[in-house]
Design a protein around this nucleic acid. Sequence first.
DNA 1: ATGTGATTTGTACTATCGTACAAAAAATCA
DNA 2: TGATTTTTTGTACGATAGTACAAATCACAT
Lengths: 236, 236
Amino acid sequence: MVRKPTSKETARKPNMREAILAAAEELFATNGFNAVSVRDIAQAAGANPGSVTYHFKTKDGLLLEIYRRHCGPMNLRRSELLAAAKRVRDLQDRLEAIVRAYVVPAFTSGSDLAGGGARFTRLRAVMSAEGNEVARKIIAQTFDDTSHAFIDAIHESLPHIPRTDIVWRSHFLLGALYYSLVTPDRVSRLSRGEADGSDAAGAIEQLVQATVAAFQAPALDQAAPARRRPVVSSKT
Amino acid sequence: MVRKPTSKETARKPNMREAILAAAEELFATNGFNAVSVRDIAQAAGANPGSVTYHFKTKDGLLLEIYRRHCGPMNLRRSELLAAAKRVRDLQDRLEAIVRAYVVPAFTSGSDLAGGGARFTRLRAVMSAEGNEVARKIIAQTFDDTSHAFIDAIHESLPHIPRTDIVWRSHFLLGALYYSLVTPDRVSRLSRGEADGSDAAGAIEQLVQATVAAFQAPALDQAAPARRRPVVSSKT
DNA sequence: ATGTGATTTGTACTATCGTACAAAAAATCA
DNA sequence: TGATTTTTTGTACGATAGTACAAATCACAT
């Protein structure tokens, strides 16, 4: 793409609206919602604080637009991958394909947005942790359908596991996914540099491998403990 | 008998300092650090805003004191449980005992603090998501030793799995643990009421069961993919 | 070139933030 | 008790928050 110096030498304004969205996404995803001011966002985008108000009315509106921008494409891509995964005949392979269909779009963007998949997922993780109200509403009404579809698909390939266990394990999957994006440095640190927590491909493989095994674990029937419980008594 | 209360435990109000700490812990854990004002904390504790400054100097100091209050007891209890777990002879049982030793203290408090284990762990999750600087420093220098001890112990009971994989999987464990405490309602919702996300005992059993299976998954040797990879192609 | 609507800028308003500090109250000790 | 220390209260200050709004500027069809 050839740069067109149509305006002044500081020609970095193809679309100020997009720049603000990108800056806000990055700042929210790393610092949380309340720690970032509208002025911070404007400065990072090379814009004036008033521009934010002009384009998005309020700070909440800005967050809302970030979600609107990503939710559609990501869920669409997940649906496509899930449909493809369901056509896998071998039951074990199918389970892995389903998990992969859930994980991959969270790391790699599904649409034209430049590599923002991981960033947006991290944003969701942070908003979820902060109990952000705007995010909570969108999440519940946008992702629950997708989550149910995945849970049902997994349940079909693991019929002997109660649905309750599937729900718990898919919940753990999302938590692990979120945390991998929130503090990748911890992986690098604890592995003493042997692993790179920021490597998306590596994280995906590790996550898929571990999660498939977790789903395949024997059912947890609270009526009768299958094996003798290891002693962990200890009184304080 | 005239008791001489030379100690500072005066009966009038059960220590305003403790009330402030408890209120701050609760508010920080549910709303994040920046969303909660000192005035919010004071009001929730039935205290005056000035009291917070008097006891803890700054808002950061208050957070710091919360960590200081919990880190010691929780790590101590984890060490005890880990030591006990390492004495389990059967390798599979030992692995489960180790995982349990890691998970249980995060849900149930280890010391005199009233049921604050889960609350503090949730606080850690939220601070981690927000990238809080004060928390990051304490966490790295307080929990990394413990984490390494657990990773080593798990590695010993799974010698054929590379340490890198163990690190990733224990990272997933912490993420799942955090997320279970952050949004337990999601479990209740997705299971259509069949599971209670707020039930600590149930969450622990599910988490231990799933995590043990994840740790026992075959190693992920990136050199040679063991099985044929399920097709998930799809181009954008 | 010029007029017109869209965008950007600069600034100002009010609310609330963390924190400081002096006075009041309570607790402790001689 | 009275003296002294500890704790609580009330208030105020500077900084910064989100947002509103008029003026300035830009893009572009005519």
